[in-house]
Design a protein around this nucleic acid. Structure first.
Lengths: 213, 213
DNA sequence: CGGCATCCACAGTGATACTG
DNA sequence: CAGTATCACTGTGGATGCCG
Protein backbone atom coordinates (compact mmCIF):
# COMPACT_ATOMS: atom_id res chain seq x y z
CA UNK A 1 0.00 0.00 0.00
CA UNK A 2 1.08 3.55 -0.46
CA UNK A 3 2.77 5.12 2.51
CA UNK A 4 0.99 7.91 4.32
CA UNK A 5 4.25 9.87 4.32
CA UNK A 6 3.58 11.28 7.76
CA UNK A 7 6.20 11.55 10.49
CA UNK A 8 3.80 10.07 13.06
CA UNK A 9 4.11 6.77 14.90
CA UNK A 10 0.56 5.73 14.15
CA UNK A 11 0.97 6.48 10.43
CA UNK A 12 4.21 4.50 10.34
CA UNK A 13 2.56 1.56 12.10
CA UNK A 14 -0.25 1.64 9.55
CA UNK A 15 2.29 1.79 6.73
CA UNK A 16 3.66 -1.49 8.06
CA UNK A 17 0.58 -3.43 9.17
CA UNK A 18 -2.35 -1.29 8.00
CA UNK A 19 -2.99 -3.23 4.82
CA UNK A 20 -6.09 -5.33 4.59
CA UNK A 21 -5.50 -8.75 6.22
CA UNK A 22 -2.11 -7.81 7.66
CA UNK A 23 -3.19 -7.50 11.29
CA UNK A 24 -5.24 -10.67 11.05
CA UNK A 25 -2.15 -12.48 9.79
CA UNK A 26 -0.24 -11.20 12.82
CA UNK A 27 -3.12 -12.40 15.00
CA UNK A 28 -2.81 -15.90 13.57
CA UNK A 29 0.92 -15.95 14.19
CA UNK A 30 0.49 -14.59 17.74
CA UNK A 31 -1.93 -17.42 18.46
CA UNK A 32 -0.27 -20.28 16.63
CA UNK A 33 3.40 -19.42 16.76
CA UNK A 34 5.40 -20.70 13.79
CA UNK A 35 3.09 -22.17 11.21
CA UNK A 36 2.75 -23.06 7.58
CA UNK A 37 1.19 -21.15 4.71
CA UNK A 38 -1.75 -23.52 4.63
CA UNK A 39 -2.38 -23.16 8.36
CA UNK A 40 -2.53 -19.40 7.88
CA UNK A 41 -4.98 -19.78 5.02
CA UNK A 42 -7.26 -21.95 7.11
CA UNK A 43 -7.23 -19.38 9.91
CA UNK A 44 -8.08 -16.55 7.52
CA UNK A 45 -11.27 -17.58 5.75
CA UNK A 46 -11.91 -15.41 2.72
CA UNK A 47 -8.35 -14.39 1.94
CA UNK A 48 -7.20 -14.94 -1.63
CA UNK A 49 -4.08 -17.03 -1.85
CA UNK A 50 -2.21 -14.49 -3.94
CA UNK A 51 -2.99 -11.82 -1.36
CA UNK A 52 -1.69 -13.98 1.47
CA UNK A 53 1.53 -14.59 -0.46
CA UNK A 54 1.91 -10.87 -1.14
CA UNK A 55 1.19 -9.90 2.46
CA UNK A 56 3.72 -12.39 3.79
CA UNK A 57 6.37 -10.83 1.55
CA UNK A 58 5.42 -7.34 2.75
CA UNK A 59 5.40 -8.32 6.41
CA UNK A 60 8.74 -10.02 5.94
CA UNK A 61 10.13 -6.86 4.34
CA UNK A 62 8.72 -4.81 7.22
CA UNK A 63 10.59 -6.98 9.73
CA UNK A 64 7.41 -8.31 11.30
CA UNK A 65 7.65 -11.96 10.22
CA UNK A 66 10.45 -14.28 9.25
CA UNK A 67 10.31 -17.20 6.88
CA UNK A 68 12.30 -20.30 7.73
CA UNK A 69 12.83 -23.46 5.76
CA UNK A 70 12.18 -26.30 8.15
CA UNK A 71 14.62 -29.20 7.70
CA UNK A 72 13.42 -32.70 6.78
CA UNK A 73 11.39 -34.62 7.72
CA UNK A 74 9.11 -31.58 7.96
CA UNK A 75 10.50 -30.01 4.79
CA UNK A 76 8.23 -27.00 4.62
CA UNK A 77 8.51 -23.27 5.08
CA UNK A 78 7.50 -21.96 8.46
CA UNK A 79 6.39 -18.39 9.11
CA UNK A 80 6.75 -16.83 12.53
CA UNK A 81 6.85 -13.42 14.16
CA UNK A 82 10.04 -11.54 14.84
CA UNK A 83 10.50 -9.79 18.16
CA UNK A 84 9.09 -6.65 16.56
CA UNK A 85 6.13 -8.64 15.38
CA UNK A 86 5.44 -10.01 18.84
CA UNK A 87 5.67 -6.44 20.13
CA UNK A 88 2.40 -5.82 18.30
CA UNK A 89 0.51 -7.98 20.80
CA UNK A 90 -0.52 -5.14 23.17
CA UNK A 91 -1.83 -3.07 20.28
CA UNK A 92 -3.77 -5.99 18.80
CA UNK A 93 -5.18 -6.93 22.20
CA UNK A 94 -6.35 -3.35 22.71
CA UNK A 95 -7.98 -3.23 19.28
CA UNK A 96 -9.53 -6.63 19.82
CA UNK A 97 -10.94 -5.58 23.14
CA UNK A 98 -12.48 -2.51 21.55
CA UNK A 99 -13.98 -4.58 18.76
CA UNK A 100 -15.31 -7.23 21.12
CA UNK A 101 -18.18 -4.94 21.97
CA UNK A 102 -19.30 -5.27 18.34
CA UNK A 103 -19.33 -9.07 18.44
CA UNK A 104 -22.96 -9.32 19.43
CA UNK A 105 -24.20 -7.59 16.30
CA UNK A 106 -24.20 -9.90 13.30
CA UNK A 107 -22.59 -13.09 14.50
CA UNK A 108 -25.05 -14.80 12.18
CA UNK A 109 -23.07 -15.80 9.11
CA UNK A 110 -19.70 -14.87 10.57
CA UNK A 111 -17.18 -17.65 10.66
CA UNK A 112 -15.96 -18.73 14.06
CA UNK A 113 -12.78 -20.61 14.83
CA UNK A 114 -12.09 -21.80 18.32
CA UNK A 115 -8.41 -20.83 18.32
CA UNK A 116 -9.39 -17.17 17.95
CA UNK A 117 -10.43 -17.17 21.58
CA UNK A 118 -6.82 -17.42 22.70
CA UNK A 119 -6.23 -13.66 22.47
CA UNK A 120 -9.36 -12.63 24.41
CA UNK A 121 -8.53 -15.27 27.01
CA UNK A 122 -5.07 -13.77 27.42
CA UNK A 123 -6.78 -10.51 28.21
CA UNK A 124 -9.54 -11.77 30.49
CA UNK A 125 -7.93 -14.46 32.58
CA UNK A 126 -5.93 -13.40 35.63
CA UNK A 127 -4.32 -15.54 38.27
CA UNK A 128 -6.36 -14.47 41.26
CA UNK A 129 -4.20 -16.43 43.72
CA UNK A 130 -0.69 -15.87 42.38
CA UNK A 131 1.09 -17.30 45.38
CA UNK A 132 -0.29 -20.81 45.07
CA UNK A 133 1.32 -23.67 43.12
CA UNK A 134 0.88 -23.59 39.37
CA UNK A 135 -2.17 -25.23 37.84
CA UNK A 136 -2.92 -26.21 34.27
CA UNK A 137 -6.26 -26.42 32.54
CA UNK A 138 -7.08 -28.22 29.32
CA UNK A 139 -9.72 -26.68 27.12
CA UNK A 140 -11.28 -28.48 24.16
CA UNK A 141 -13.38 -26.01 22.19
CA UNK A 142 -14.96 -27.35 19.00
CA UNK A 143 -12.34 -30.08 19.19
CA UNK A 144 -9.51 -27.52 19.23
CA UNK A 145 -7.24 -28.05 22.28
CA UNK A 146 -6.14 -24.96 24.20
CA UNK A 147 -3.74 -25.02 27.13
CA UNK A 148 -4.04 -22.65 30.06
CA UNK A 149 -1.39 -22.42 32.75
CA UNK A 150 -1.63 -20.22 35.82
CA UNK A 151 1.57 -19.56 37.74
CA UNK A 152 1.47 -16.00 38.92
CA UNK A 153 0.55 -14.97 35.41
CA UNK A 154 -1.71 -16.81 33.02
CA UNK A 155 -0.40 -18.25 29.78
CA UNK A 156 -2.80 -19.36 27.05
CA UNK A 157 -1.63 -21.24 24.00
CA UNK A 158 -2.80 -23.72 21.41
CA UNK A 159 -2.26 -27.39 22.08
CA UNK A 160 -2.97 -30.13 24.55
CA UNK A 161 -1.75 -30.27 28.13
CA UNK A 162 -0.43 -33.48 29.69
CA UNK A 163 -1.94 -33.78 33.15
CA UNK A 164 -4.44 -30.96 33.57
CA UNK A 165 -5.96 -30.10 36.95
CA UNK A 166 -9.24 -29.39 35.19
CA UNK A 167 -10.79 -29.89 31.77
CA UNK A 168 -13.38 -27.81 29.92
CA UNK A 169 -15.02 -29.27 26.82
CA UNK A 170 -17.74 -27.89 24.62
CA UNK A 171 -18.73 -25.68 21.70
CA UNK A 172 -16.34 -22.78 21.19
CA UNK A 173 -18.70 -19.89 21.83
CA UNK A 174 -20.08 -21.48 24.98
CA UNK A 175 -16.62 -22.31 26.31
CA UNK A 176 -15.55 -18.71 25.69
CA UNK A 177 -18.66 -17.44 27.49
CA UNK A 178 -17.94 -19.66 30.48
CA UNK A 179 -14.27 -18.68 30.71
CA UNK A 180 -14.91 -14.95 30.37
CA UNK A 181 -17.59 -14.91 33.04
CA UNK A 182 -20.59 -14.47 30.78
CA UNK A 183 -23.67 -16.52 31.59
CA UNK A 184 -23.56 -19.61 29.38
CA UNK A 185 -26.58 -20.38 27.27
CA UNK A 186 -28.81 -23.12 28.60
CA UNK A 187 -29.59 -26.33 26.76
CA UNK A 188 -27.57 -29.18 25.34
CA UNK A 189 -24.61 -27.03 24.24
CA UNK A 190 -23.44 -26.39 27.79
CA UNK A 191 -19.71 -26.94 28.20
CA UNK A 192 -18.65 -29.88 30.36
CA UNK A 193 -16.27 -29.18 33.21
CA UNK A 194 -14.28 -31.93 34.90
CA UNK A 195 -11.56 -32.12 37.51
CA UNK A 196 -10.56 -29.48 40.05
CA UNK A 197 -13.21 -26.76 39.81
CA UNK A 198 -11.16 -24.62 42.16
CA UNK A 199 -8.41 -24.37 39.54
CA UNK A 200 -10.96 -22.85 37.20
CA UNK A 201 -12.28 -20.45 39.81
CA UNK A 202 -8.73 -19.24 40.28
CA UNK A 203 -8.52 -17.71 36.80
CA UNK A 204 -12.09 -16.98 35.68
CA UNK A 205 -13.31 -13.41 36.26
CA UNK A 206 -16.39 -12.72 38.34
CA UNK A 207 -19.59 -13.64 36.50
CA UNK A 208 -21.17 -10.63 34.86
CA UNK A 209 -24.68 -10.16 33.57
CA UNK A 210 -23.92 -8.30 30.34
CA UNK A 211 -21.59 -9.41 27.58
CA UNK A 212 -18.70 -7.24 26.58
CA UNK A 213 -16.11 -9.90 25.88
CA UNK B 1 -14.72 -2.03 2.92
CA UNK B 2 -15.92 -5.56 2.84
CA UNK B 3 -16.40 -7.13 6.25
CA UNK B 4 -14.05 -9.91 7.25
CA UNK B 5 -17.08 -11.87 8.46
CA UNK B 6 -15.17 -13.29 11.39
CA UNK B 7 -16.55 -13.59 14.91
CA UNK B 8 -13.38 -12.10 16.39
CA UNK B 9 -12.96 -8.83 18.21
CA UNK B 10 -9.97 -7.76 16.18
CA UNK B 11 -11.73 -8.50 12.89
CA UNK B 12 -14.78 -6.52 14.05
CA UNK B 13 -12.58 -3.59 15.05
CA UNK B 14 -10.94 -3.65 11.63
CA UNK B 15 -14.35 -3.80 9.98
CA UNK B 16 -15.12 -0.52 11.74
CA UNK B 17 -11.84 1.42 11.62
CA UNK B 18 -9.58 -0.72 9.43
CA UNK B 19 -10.18 1.24 6.24
CA UNK B 20 -7.38 3.35 4.87
CA UNK B 21 -7.30 6.75 6.62
CA UNK B 22 -9.91 5.82 9.23
CA UNK B 23 -7.55 5.48 12.19
CA UNK B 24 -5.74 8.66 11.20
CA UNK B 25 -9.07 10.49 11.21
CA UNK B 26 -9.69 9.18 14.71
CA UNK B 27 -6.19 10.37 15.65
CA UNK B 28 -7.03 13.88 14.46
CA UNK B 29 -10.24 13.93 16.45
CA UNK B 30 -8.52 12.55 19.56
CA UNK B 31 -6.00 15.37 19.33
CA UNK B 32 -8.23 18.24 18.30
CA UNK B 33 -11.58 17.39 19.80
CA UNK B 34 -14.54 18.68 17.80
CA UNK B 35 -13.38 20.17 14.53
CA UNK B 36 -14.44 21.09 11.04
CA UNK B 37 -14.07 19.17 7.80
CA UNK B 38 -11.36 21.55 6.62
CA UNK B 39 -9.38 21.17 9.84
CA UNK B 40 -9.44 17.41 9.32
CA UNK B 41 -8.24 17.80 5.75
CA UNK B 42 -5.33 19.96 6.83
CA UNK B 43 -4.31 17.40 9.45
CA UNK B 44 -4.42 14.56 6.91
CA UNK B 45 -2.12 15.61 4.07
CA UNK B 46 -2.65 13.46 1.03
CA UNK B 47 -6.26 12.45 1.63
CA UNK B 48 -8.67 13.02 -1.24
CA UNK B 49 -11.69 15.07 -0.28
CA UNK B 50 -14.17 12.48 -1.54
CA UNK B 51 -12.44 9.84 0.58
CA UNK B 52 -12.62 12.01 3.68
CA UNK B 53 -16.31 12.61 3.09
CA UNK B 54 -16.93 8.88 2.60
CA UNK B 55 -14.91 7.91 5.68
CA UNK B 56 -16.76 10.39 7.85
CA UNK B 57 -20.04 8.84 6.74
CA UNK B 58 -18.73 5.37 7.51
CA UNK B 59 -17.33 6.32 10.90
CA UNK B 60 -20.61 8.02 11.72
CA UNK B 61 -22.50 4.87 10.75
CA UNK B 62 -20.11 2.82 12.90
CA UNK B 63 -20.90 4.98 15.93
CA UNK B 64 -17.37 6.30 16.18
CA UNK B 65 -17.98 9.95 15.29
CA UNK B 66 -20.95 12.28 15.44
CA UNK B 67 -21.68 15.19 13.19
CA UNK B 68 -23.24 18.28 14.73
CA UNK B 69 -24.47 21.45 13.13
CA UNK B 70 -22.98 24.28 15.14
CA UNK B 71 -25.43 27.16 15.65
CA UNK B 72 -24.69 30.68 14.42
CA UNK B 73 -22.45 32.61 14.58
CA UNK B 74 -20.26 29.55 13.92
CA UNK B 75 -22.72 28.00 11.46
CA UNK B 76 -20.67 25.03 10.40
CA UNK B 77 -20.73 21.28 10.87
CA UNK B 78 -18.50 19.95 13.62
CA UNK B 79 -17.23 16.40 13.82
CA UNK B 80 -16.29 14.82 17.11
CA UNK B 81 -15.76 11.40 18.63
CA UNK B 82 -18.45 9.51 20.46
CA UNK B 83 -17.62 7.73 23.72
CA UNK B 84 -16.93 4.61 21.67
CA UNK B 85 -14.63 6.61 19.47
CA UNK B 86 -12.69 7.96 22.44
CA UNK B 87 -12.41 4.39 23.69
CA UNK B 88 -10.07 3.78 20.76
CA UNK B 89 -7.37 5.91 22.38
CA UNK B 90 -5.53 3.06 24.18
CA UNK B 91 -5.41 1.01 20.99
CA UNK B 92 -4.17 3.93 18.89
CA UNK B 93 -1.58 4.86 21.51
CA UNK B 94 -0.31 1.28 21.53
CA UNK B 95 -0.09 1.18 17.75
CA UNK B 96 1.56 4.57 17.66
CA UNK B 97 4.11 3.52 20.23
CA UNK B 98 4.92 0.46 18.15
CA UNK B 99 5.28 2.54 15.00
CA UNK B 100 7.37 5.19 16.69
CA UNK B 101 10.37 2.88 16.38
CA UNK B 102 10.03 3.22 12.61
CA UNK B 103 10.10 7.02 12.70
CA UNK B 104 13.83 7.27 12.25
CA UNK B 105 13.81 5.56 8.87
CA UNK B 106 12.66 7.88 6.13
CA UNK B 107 11.61 11.07 7.83
CA UNK B 108 13.05 12.79 4.77
CA UNK B 109 10.07 13.79 2.67
CA UNK B 110 7.49 12.86 5.28
CA UNK B 111 5.20 15.64 6.34
CA UNK B 112 5.35 16.70 9.95
CA UNK B 113 2.71 18.58 11.88
CA UNK B 114 3.38 19.74 15.40
CA UNK B 115 -0.02 18.77 16.76
CA UNK B 116 0.72 15.12 16.02
CA UNK B 117 3.07 15.10 19.00
CA UNK B 118 0.13 15.35 21.40
CA UNK B 119 -0.50 11.59 21.39
CA UNK B 120 3.12 10.54 22.00
CA UNK B 121 3.34 13.16 24.72
CA UNK B 122 0.29 11.66 26.41
CA UNK B 123 2.17 8.39 26.49
CA UNK B 124 5.60 9.64 27.53
CA UNK B 125 4.89 12.32 30.11
CA UNK B 126 4.18 11.22 33.66
CA UNK B 127 3.70 13.34 36.77
CA UNK B 128 6.71 12.23 38.76
CA UNK B 129 5.67 14.18 41.86
CA UNK B 130 1.90 13.63 41.94
CA UNK B 131 1.40 15.04 45.41
CA UNK B 132 2.56 18.56 44.62
CA UNK B 133 0.37 21.44 43.42
CA UNK B 134 -0.65 21.38 39.78
CA UNK B 135 1.59 23.03 37.22
CA UNK B 136 0.92 24.03 33.64
CA UNK B 137 3.37 24.27 30.76
CA UNK B 138 2.91 26.09 27.49
CA UNK B 139 4.53 24.54 24.43
CA UNK B 140 4.84 26.36 21.12
CA UNK B 141 6.06 23.90 18.49
CA UNK B 142 6.33 25.27 14.95
CA UNK B 143 3.96 28.00 16.12
CA UNK B 144 1.36 25.45 17.24
CA UNK B 145 0.39 25.97 20.91
CA UNK B 146 0.10 22.86 23.07
CA UNK B 147 -1.03 22.90 26.68
CA UNK B 148 0.37 20.50 29.29
CA UNK B 149 -1.07 20.25 32.78
CA UNK B 150 0.31 18.04 35.51
CA UNK B 151 -1.93 17.39 38.50
CA UNK B 152 -1.39 13.80 39.53
CA UNK B 153 -1.89 12.78 35.94
CA UNK B 154 -0.69 14.65 32.88
CA UNK B 155 -3.13 16.11 30.38
CA UNK B 156 -1.93 17.22 26.97
CA UNK B 157 -4.17 19.13 24.58
CA UNK B 158 -4.06 21.63 21.76
CA UNK B 159 -4.29 25.30 22.62
CA UNK B 160 -2.68 28.02 24.66
CA UNK B 161 -2.47 28.15 28.43
CA UNK B 162 -3.09 31.34 30.38
CA UNK B 163 -0.36 31.62 33.02
CA UNK B 164 2.10 28.80 32.45
CA UNK B 165 4.76 27.91 34.98
CA UNK B 166 7.14 27.20 32.11
CA UNK B 167 7.29 27.72 28.37
CA UNK B 168 8.97 25.66 25.67
CA UNK B 169 9.32 27.14 22.18
CA UNK B 170 11.03 25.76 19.11
CA UNK B 171 10.82 23.57 16.02
CA UNK B 172 8.42 20.68 16.43
CA UNK B 173 10.82 17.78 16.11
CA UNK B 174 13.29 19.34 18.52
CA UNK B 175 10.61 20.17 21.06
CA UNK B 176 9.36 16.58 20.88
CA UNK B 177 12.90 15.29 21.36
CA UNK B 178 13.37 17.50 24.40
CA UNK B 179 10.06 16.54 25.98
CA UNK B 180 10.52 12.81 25.42
CA UNK B 181 14.00 12.75 26.88
CA UNK B 182 15.91 12.28 23.64
CA UNK B 183 19.10 14.30 23.24
CA UNK B 184 18.18 17.41 21.25
CA UNK B 185 20.22 18.21 18.17
CA UNK B 186 22.76 20.94 18.63
CA UNK B 187 22.82 24.18 16.67
CA UNK B 188 20.42 27.03 16.12
CA UNK B 189 17.27 24.91 16.17
CA UNK B 190 17.51 24.23 19.90
CA UNK B 191 14.19 24.78 21.68
CA UNK B 192 14.04 27.69 24.10
CA UNK B 193 12.90 27.00 27.63
CA UNK B 194 11.72 29.74 29.96
CA UNK B 195 10.17 29.94 33.41
CA UNK B 196 10.19 27.29 36.12
CA UNK B 197 12.55 24.57 34.89
CA UNK B 198 11.53 22.40 37.82
CA UNK B 199 7.99 22.16 36.43
CA UNK B 200 9.46 20.66 33.29
CA UNK B 201 11.67 18.24 35.19
CA UNK B 202 8.57 17.01 36.97
CA UNK B 203 7.04 15.52 33.82
CA UNK B 204 9.92 14.79 31.43
CA UNK B 205 11.24 11.21 31.48
CA UNK B 206 14.88 10.48 32.24
CA UNK B 207 17.16 11.39 29.34
CA UNK B 208 17.97 8.40 27.20
CA UNK B 209 20.75 7.91 24.72
CA UNK B 210 18.86 6.12 21.94
CA UNK B 211 15.72 7.28 20.25
CA UNK B 212 12.65 5.09 20.37
CA UNK B 213 10.03 7.77 20.72
C1' DC C 1 -0.23 -31.87 -0.61
C1' DG C 2 2.22 -27.06 0.11
C1' DG C 3 3.34 -22.68 -1.87
C1' DC C 4 2.64 -19.99 -4.70
C1' DA C 5 1.75 -17.31 -9.91
C1' DT C 6 -1.68 -15.85 -13.43
C1' DC C 7 -5.86 -14.06 -15.04
C1' DC C 8 -9.98 -11.40 -14.62
C1' DA C 9 -14.20 -8.81 -12.96
C1' DC C 10 -14.89 -5.51 -9.78
C1' DA C 11 -14.41 -2.37 -5.80
C1' DG C 12 -11.55 1.05 -3.65
C1' DT C 13 -8.31 5.05 -4.22
C1' DG C 14 -6.51 9.58 -5.44
C1' DA C 15 -6.11 13.80 -8.41
C1' DT C 16 -8.72 17.32 -10.25
C1' DA C 17 -12.68 20.01 -11.18
C1' DC C 18 -16.84 21.81 -9.84
C1' DT C 19 -21.07 23.32 -6.78
C1' DG C 20 -24.53 25.30 -3.17
C1' DC D 1 -16.82 25.76 3.87
C1' DA D 2 -18.31 21.29 2.95
C1' DG D 3 -18.70 18.62 0.20
C1' DT D 4 -20.20 16.02 -4.95
C1' DA D 5 -18.76 14.44 -9.80
C1' DT D 6 -15.76 12.39 -12.81
C1' DC D 7 -12.22 9.34 -14.19
C1' DA D 8 -7.72 6.92 -14.56
C1' DC D 9 -5.54 3.90 -11.77
C1' DT D 10 -4.61 0.37 -8.23
C1' DG D 11 -5.98 -3.22 -5.02
C1' DT D 12 -9.06 -7.19 -3.95
C1' DG D 13 -11.16 -11.64 -4.20
C1' DG D 14 -12.38 -15.73 -6.80
C1' DA D 15 -10.90 -19.28 -9.97
C1' DT D 16 -7.54 -21.85 -11.79
C1' DG D 17 -3.00 -23.61 -13.07
C1' DC D 18 1.80 -24.86 -12.07
C1' DC D 19 5.61 -27.10 -9.96
C1' DG D 20 8.40 -29.73 -6.60
Amino acid sequence: MKSYKQACGLAKALDAVGDRWSMLIVRELLIRGACRYTDLRRGLPGIATNLLAERMRELEAAGVVIREEAPPPVATTLFSLTARGRALEPALLALGQWGAALLGEAAADDSFQAHWMVLPLRHFLKDRRPGEPAVSIAVIADGQPIAIEAAGEVRVSLGAVAAPHATVTGPGREVLALLTGRPPGAGPGRPKVAGDLDALARIIPEPRATADA
